[in-house]
Amino acid sequence: MNSSLITNIISVLVLAIASYFVFNSFNIALSPAISIALGIIIGGIATVLLTQLKSASTGVETAHVSELSTLYVGNLPYRANEQAVQEHFELHGVVNSVRLMKDRRTGKRKGYGFVEMDAKGADKAIKNLNDSVFQERTLKVRLAKDKTEEE
């Protein structure tokens, strides 16, 4: 489950429990099941409204989700973090995620990673950032190859 779904579920449950206590504190004669059900309904409506407001304020449309490209970014400086890489790539398009690879044993960065961004921005990023200098290192940027399952 993604974190926004978990947050939404927790919010609905908190509102359900809060409504139970609110109805009981005002001596409104409702059974506990009905007051919790009302809280779930109110929480669900609030969650949907907040989600719509959040997506409207960020300008992100869900129709463009299928138009994402994953870029391989090589020769990254070991000191670079996800935030710095994201900011660097956002100059060329909307970045969905950044994953910098780390050694499992030592936890140190390996010097490469993957940036998922909108397809148009990815094309721009490849054109403008491949062989460009980032934190004193020359980046290698290209479309990532799909993982192939080994048999």
Rank of each mutant, 00 (worst) to 15 (best):
T70L: 12
N130D: 13
G44L: 03
A84D: 12
I34M: 13
D131I: 10
D123N: 13
S4D: 10
H64T: 15
Y112K: 02
Y78Q: 07
V141M: 09
H88T: 04
L38V: 07
S19M: 13
N75A: 09
V65Q: 14
L13E: 04
R105M: 06
G113K: 05
T106H: 04
F134R: 02
R104I: 01
F134A: 03
R104Y: 10
V115S: 11
V65I: 15
S66L: 09
V65W: 03
A56E: 09
Y78K: 12
I10L: 15
I42A: 13
V48N: 12
Y20Q: 03
E67C: 03
A46K: 06
E67Q: 15
S35M: 08
F21R: 08
A18D: 05
K108C: 01
P77H: 05
S69V: 11
V60H: 10
P32N: 05
K102G: 04
A46P: 01
A46D: 01
T7C: 01
S66C: 07
D146L: 04
L49G: 06
V85P: 09
V98D: 08
L53I: 08
A16M: 04
L68F: 12
N75C: 08
E90R: 09
K127E: 11
I41D: 00
I10E: 07
V95W: 03
A63W: 13
S57D: 00
N81Q: 14
S25H: 14
A84M: 13
Q83W: 02
L100Y: 07
A37R: 03
E87S: 05
E87H: 06
S55Q: 13
K110C: 05
G93A: 11
A56T: 08
G74S: 10
A18G: 12
R79V: 11
T7R: 06
G113H: 03
V22T: 10
S66A: 15
F26T: 13
K127L: 09
L5I: 11
V73A: 09
I45P: 00
V115H: 08
R142C: 07
A56D: 14
R104N: 11
I45R: 00
R109P: 05
P77F: 02
L15K: 03
P77L: 00
V141S: 08
R105C: 07
G107K: 13
L68I: 15
V22N: 06
G43H: 04
T138V: 15
I36P: 06
S11P: 01
I9Y: 13
A33R: 06
Y78G: 02
S35D: 10
D131G: 09
G59D: 13
